[in-house]
Design a protein around this nucleic acid. Structure first.
Length: 552
RNA sequence: UGGGGCGUGGCCAAGCGGUUAAGGCACCGGGUUUUGAUCCCGGCAUUCGUAGGUUCGAAUCCUACCGCCCCAGCCA
């Protein structure tokens, strides 16, 4: 497992910073509070906070709250929790809305300097005037109206005198630019929505391209790291800061530099907030923290740890290409961590009763079980061995496939940390369904190999009268396609078997009072975490990940 | 035939003119094992999208071509 001493791997951003020998490295993680954080954000968080840490700098958490239609306090709360849970501390908690007054002053200054204007074209007209990828746009007839007139209209927009869509503030750049972002981008729109933080003060809200760069500059961010899709926005980012600096506004601005890195893509899932919102809203998952979701909260509930997610981010690297990461990378990081740290327990997910006829009805032999096969310091626990036990249905086959090394009629198998048993009789009901097995045990096999023969198989079990009935939720990938977006509709690729509930699982008694969130290895099956749906009478466990399986 | 990016093994990814082309995941052996787990040992790119060129020497420099991604929200 990765330790704190594992150095962050080299990447192009770190190399760049090393060459710069900058005095400070100031970054920010700037989510819009319109949803929950997911693995893609984790990559950005680890990059932004990690790189600042390593260069003795700092990182702000900034909510990009410029679109009150979609944003809420619930999301801000969840985001803060997730960043902290991942193990990072921000220097300042900031909000783009903190800068609304400054941003407005800057807009006034840009109008005065002739770098912005109020346009009164409709949205459709603006789209037509914008031209296409291959054809230049046309200038709005309002583009050259006087600064005084624009200022007057802006003031009216701000005070709510106009309806949404009536006017808009645009930068005056170049309608013929080959970069669409430079064709007089909009920077303020009328929106008469209550804002969680600023209330009803504003009836205009600034747009991303205008807000983000200035927010970075105001906070003194040195390295503004974002994903590849914003590459085309960089010239605009720089243009805005330069023009505002050249104006006479009394807003102090630093000189942030935007650098873009490749977004994270993970097989068998989707990592776009819009689509995750859709999954939640359509009820295709139980919520943002559904253990199948690639959200931080979903992974946490599933049983992933902050360390494992940070290690995942370390392993995938940071480059300028859009990587598609195999799911095995994620599975491996949590397996590696839990293999070291998780205590072993026995649990039978689909029970089959076994009667050991060679034992007395009241046989109750206390056996000792190591909590970890390679770590004696983790201690041991006791488990009674009784006449009736449960084994896994899949550990018995009347007609076994080749190389099957579990229990078969007339065959022997080792009950884990206990005795070797032989299957004497298969009991079935009138439908031919196996209801129980009658076996005999070899009393001379506790802690030693049987005489004169080899028993290859070892299976897990629980004592029938002493086990705890519980619900075990076996999760699988949410989509059945490596790339759900390759479908016409990605929802067609939803895996209908992504959750299988084992209603009759039997846990060994030591698991009865496990704390919510604690995780264990259920021997031979995988790693499981105790879910928050657990009750005192009925624990609920989530399968985090199966054990590696080179047989089936 | 608008602009911006990216192409190193199945998936990531180091590499920055001289290395036998790191490492991880995956996969394939073999050993240990009372978890078909773990652990251990071994294998896994004569080659860096393709074709030319520069150079004593190229994944690294140049040229052309090919492929993939992003951009026409009053979203971020």
């Amino acid at each position: 497992m990765a330790s704190e001493s594992d150095p962050a791997p080299s990447n192009f951003i770190r190399s760049m910073i090393e060459k710069q020998a900058a005095s400070t490295v100031a970054t920010r993680f700037p989510p819009e509070p319109n949803g929950y954080l997911h693995l893609g954000h984790a990559k950005s968080i680890c990059l932004n906070f990690g790189i600042a840490q390593d260069f003795n700098g700092w990182t702000n958490l900034r909510f990009d709250d410029t679109n009150p239609d979609k944003e809420s306090e619930e999301f801000m709360t969840a985001i803060k929790r997730d960043v902290e849970w991942l193990g990072f501390q921000w220097k300042s908690l900031c909000y783009a809305s903190d800068y609304f007054d400054d941003l407005y002053s800057c807009a006034v200054a840009l109008i005065k300097s002739g770098d912005a204007y109020v346009d009164s074209l409709s949205a459709e007209e603006i789209r037509e005037y914008r031209g296409s990828l291959k054809e230049p746009g046309k200038e709005s007839p309002y583009r050259n109206r006087s600064a005084e007139q624009s200022l007057e209209l802006l003031e009216e927009m701000k005070s709510g005198k106009h309806n949404e869509g009536d006017h808009i503030v645009r930068l005056k750049i170049d309608m013929a630019s080959s970069n669409m972002n430079m064709r007089d981008p909009a920077i303020y729109r009328i929106k008469k929505t209550h804002h969680y933080r600023t209330g009803d003060k504003w009836s205009i809200y600034p747009l991303y391209d205008y807000t983000h760069c200035l927010s970075d500059a105001i906070e003194g961010i040195t390295h503004s790291l974002c994903t590849l899709e914003f590459e085309d926005h960089r010239p605009l980012y720089e243009w805005v800061i330069e023009k505002v600096k050249a104006s006479s506004v009394a807003v102090e601005l630093g000189s942030p530099v935007q650098t873009e890195f490749g977004p994270l893509n993970l097989e068998y899932t989707v990592l776009s907030k819009r689509k995750l919102i859709e999954l939640v809203q359509k009820g295709l998952v139980s919520g943002w923290d559904d253990p199948r979701m690639p959200t931080i909260s979903g992974l946490r509930r599933r049983g992933f740890t902050p360390d494992s997610i940070r290690e995942f981010c370390r392993r995938i690297g940071v480059t300028k290409s859009s990587a598609v990461i195999e799911i095995s990378v994620l599975e491996t990081v949590i397996r590696e961590e839990l293999n070291e740290s998780a205590e072993r327990r026995m649990a039978v997910l689909e029970p089959l009763k076994v009667v050991i006829t060679s034992l007395a009805d009241d046989h109750n032999e206390i056996l000792q079980f190591a909590n970890h096969p390679n770590k004696p310091e983790l201690g041991s626990r006791q488990l009674p061995f009784t006449r009736e036990v449960y084994i896994e249905q899949s550990d018995f086959e009347e007609d076994p496939p080749p190389k099957f090394k579990r229990l078969v009629p007339g065959g022997e198998v080792r009950l884990r940390s206990s005795y070797v048993i032989r299957c004497d009789e298969v009991i079935k009901d009138e439908n031919g369904k196996i209801t129980e097995l009658h076996c005999t045990h070899d009393p001379d096999t506790l802690g030693k190999k049987p005489e004169g023969r080899k028993v290859k198989g070892v299976i897990h079990w629980v004592p029938a009268g002493h086990s705890v009935k519980s619900e075990v939720r076996v999760y699988d990938r949410l989509f059945n396609q490596p790339n759900p977006l390759a479908e016409d509709n990605y929802l067609d690729a939803i895996n209908s078997d992504s959750l299988v509930v084992m209603e009759d699982a039997q846990l060994e008694p030591a698991l009865a009072s496990s704390a919510v969130g604690s995780s264990y290895q259920f021997e031979r099956q995988g790693y499981f975490a105790v879910d928050e749906d657990s009750t005192a009478e009925r624990p609920v466990c989530n399968r985090i990940v199966s054990l590696r399986d080179t047989w089936s």
